[in-house]
Amino acid sequence: MVLVLVGFLVVPLFGLLRSSFLPGNRLLEGTGFSLKQYLIFFSDSYYSSMLLETVVDGLVVTLICLAIGFPTGYSLARLPPFARRWRMLIVILPLTLSLVVVVFGWMIVLGRNGLLNAFLVNVGILSTPKTFLFSRPAVVVVLVQQFLPFMILSIMSVVAQIDPVLEQAAANLRSNRFTTFRKVIIPLALPGIIVGFNLVFVLSISAFVTPRIIGGSRVAMIGSLIYERMMAELNWPSGAAMAVVLFICGLGFTAALNALATSQFIVGRRRREV
């Protein structure tokens, strides 16, 4: 296992790093060392604004996933097994189903002859069908649906370990649901929240199928740009440099989250000791 992962995960990452410093614009051509790709990336505002938009979109997707995934994950953990069964199937299906199929399903929802238009026109909210595809909100909605299961499952697995007795104790002490939620459940579920947050963010910023198909040419995210550079323009050093920047963003986010979690944990402990 170590051989496989080092050989085919760690080595390619270094290879990627190396080729991002190549001077040429073509397929792995030449040798030498140059910062050209990075200079282009950071000096042109086109790239920096796209990177910023991608990160903002990633954060929005992650926050929405947290907001709607938490109640769902929590209730799943507390449900009796027979009721949990079919709900789990619904949660697991988009996770295991190919991304392209899910994206195609959303085209049927959002397209001009789609479900949403048929509904809105019939109800009378819209007089003529409208295109919902090719917009940033559409991309965000589809990304939320794709990555929501990761959040739900991470939260479900930690909540399942919280003893319901703690909540009953809080209720006995006359705290209402919101106080119990804030003072008891959130701190205990924090590890799961962090794992889910991390997974969803990394997945969202590197998405390229969804922005390309649902967003079209109007919504650019860094993942779809990398795909274009690599597979259509064959400009590998440029694609590699962008992938390195993307990877560093993801790692930075992971590190920041971990740091936050550790400090929260220490503060929490100190408070309890006092």
């Binding site: 995960l9 390619p12 990452l13 990627l16 991390n198 997974l199 990394v202 997945l203 910023i205 590197s206 390229f208 993942g223 990398i226 795909y227 690599m230 590998w236 694609g239 590699a240 992938a243 390195v244 993307l246 990877f247 993801g250 790692l251 992971t254």
Partner: peptide, 9 residues
């Protein structure tokens, strides 16, 4: 936690 794009390239 490695983005798919990064692993793919």
């Amino acid at each position: 936690i490695v983005p798919a794009v990064v692993l793919g390239i």
